[in-house]
């Protein structure tokens, strides 16, 4: 590495014009992530606002998924992975030993690249979270939560007559919306999405993008994507990652029209990546 210190646009609450609330939901300071000896994230700092969509873009292997998985501590499931630095959600250090990881993950939901519905019925897939967290007092309440979540995920009309059928029997796009419904059933505040559309056709992708846009009203959403168009369409903020560092983070429109860094410009215009 050369001595070049990556320039970072730390977003200020006023900065992205798209933001209404001006609240930061997730903040990270000097985060390093190692897989064994190998460092995957270097000195990363970022402020992610509430009620907005932030897109993570960057070439393959630059650490987007790794950082995303730090935010709900899914990296805990990888024995070799070590995270240092500070990550706060709602001003609480989530790597504090006193924190309850289970509670954190209920608050910070995740949707994976490949749809991974459980081998259970559609209903049971969505009811899974509410059941384990005891969110529903009775059957009727559980029914309501399931319906509400499926409606929010835009899947209700398609599956309301076959809730008892296995979730794995749905099409890829429907499965992914089921996974989103499953994630929002536990009332998370942050939703992390790792390339949620990469296994989907353009129509299903458009459905999910619409959905993300609606969810933005109530949630803090972070989405990893390889599609510049998608980042431009759904996000208000964009973060560009390169070789484990955050190169640039700011208003999506500005980033795509006038990036401050040459590397960002090269990536966006397709000159490397």
């Amino acid at each position: 590495m050369n001595a070049h210190v990556p320039h970072q646009t730390l977003v200020t609450p006023e900065k992205p014009r798209a933001l209404a609330s001006g609240q930061f939901k997730v903040t990270a300071r000097d985060v390093d992530v190692y897989y064994g000896e190998k460092q995957a994230i270097k000195k990363l700092s970022i402020d992610i606002p509430d009620r907005a969509v932030s897109a993570f873009i960057g070439p393959s292997g630059c650490g987007k998924s790794t950082f995303l998985r730090c935010i709900n501590r899914m990296n805990d499931t990888i024995p070799t992975c070590k995270v240092t630095g500070l990550i706060d959600v709602d001003k609480h250090d989530i790597y504090d030993p006193k924190i309850d990881v289970v509670q954190l993950r209920a608050k910070v939901g995740m949707v994976f690249q490949k749809p991974n519905p459980f081998p259970k019925s559609i209903f049971e897939n969505v009811a899974y979270g509410p059941r384990i967290h005891g969110l529903a007092a009775g059957k009727t309440e559980l029914d309501e939560i399931v319906e509400k979540s499926l409606r929010k995920a835009g899947l209700w009309e398609e599956v309301k007559d076959r809730l008892a059928q296995p979730g794995t029997g749905l099409s890829g796009g429907q499965q992914q919306r089921l996974c989103i419904a499953r994630a929002i059933a536990v009332n998370p505040e942050v939703i992390l999405m790792d390339e949620p559309c990469s296994a989907l056709d353009p129509i299903a992708t458009a459905r999910i993008e619409e959905l993300i846009d609606e969810l933005r009203q109530n949630y803090c959403i972070v989405i990893v994507t390889h599609s510049m168009q998608q980042a431009a369409r759904v996000s208000q903020l964009t973060a560009f990652f390169h070789l484990g560092t955050l190169v640039e983070y700011g208003d999506t429109d500005e980033m795509f029209t006038a990036p401050q860094e040459k590397r960002t410009q090269d990536y966006i215009t397709g000159r490397f990546g």
Binding site: N72, M74, T77, V102, Q103, L104, R105, A106, K107, G109, M110, F112, K114, N116, P117, F118, P119, K120, Y128, G129, I132, H133, C179, R182, A183, V186
Partner: peptide, 26 residues
């Protein structure tokens, strides 16, 4: 598949809940 376990952990399930409700049924 590990993806099923990940899905369950990401919902805030503990290890034994994941085993009981996802891994063993599968």
């Amino acid at each position: 598949p590990q993806s099923l376990r990940d899905g369950s952990y990401a919902m805030g399930a503990t290890k034994s809940e994941t085993i009981k409700r996802v891994v063993l049924p599968a």
